[in-house]
Simulated scan of single mutants.
Amino acid sequence: MFKNLFKKPSTIIQIKAPITGEILPLEKVPDPVFSQKMMGEGVAIIPNDENIVAPVEGTIVQIAPSKHAIGLKTPNDREILIHVGLETVSLDGKGFYVLVKEGDRVSVGDRLMTVDLGYIRNKVDHIITPMVITNSNQSQNEYILTTETECVAGKTTVLTISG
């Protein structure tokens, strides 16, 4: 009778799409680091737009020197990495235009960067964009992928965290 009395209430976090495009399960990413969830739970998007936006409210905690990835931290300590394309670190920042800096606070839908998809597509094998919760292994949360197949940046919930 009393076992639920002191139980923390469950929280639900909705993570929006960081870019407009086609939604895929992380397991479909042609890179085992992502597909085997070595970096954490998440989702992947094949982009058809050049704007990367904040999928959650949070703080920019990392921008890769090669500008291909941005890390955010939510107010409830979720760490989210948006990784544009695969093997894009080799582009040395070309084709990526970052609009934020580390320490900036952002809201859902705020533009983080723009990318030259045409340039990137011609230089690497995959423009698929994984978004992972890098500290997902530190909790017992449930990660629920949307049933949608297409998403709009900053609008479509692509991943729900329950726990």
Rank of each mutant, 00 (worst) to 15 (best):
P30S: 14
N141K: 13
L112I: 12
L91E: 02
T156S: 07
L26D: 05
T156N: 03
Y119W: 09
F2A: 14
V33Q: 09
E87L: 06
M131S: 05
T20Q: 07
P130H: 10
K101E: 15
K37V: 10
S162D: 05
K3H: 11
L81R: 02
S10R: 11
D77S: 14
T147H: 11
P25K: 12
P32S: 11
E150A: 14
N122M: 06
I15V: 12
V56A: 03
V152A: 09
P75H: 07
N135L: 10
V108P: 04
C151Q: 02
T156A: 01
I70S: 06
I80C: 04
Y119D: 07
R78C: 04
G163R: 11
I23S: 05
D110W: 02
M131G: 01
P25H: 12
T114G: 00
N122E: 15
N48P: 02
G21I: 00
R105Y: 12
A54W: 09
I82S: 04
E87M: 10
V100S: 07
G163F: 01
T157E: 13
S35Y: 02
T149F: 03
A153L: 09
I19C: 03
L5I: 11
P75E: 13
F2L: 14
L86A: 03
R105C: 11
K3D: 13
I120T: 09
V53P: 01
G40R: 04
A153I: 02
G93K: 01
K7T: 13
S66I: 01
Y97G: 00
E50C: 06
L91T: 10
G21Q: 06
N137V: 05
N135W: 07
N4V: 06
V98H: 10
Y97V: 08
G85H: 00
A44M: 06
N137T: 11
P9H: 07
L81N: 02
E102V: 03
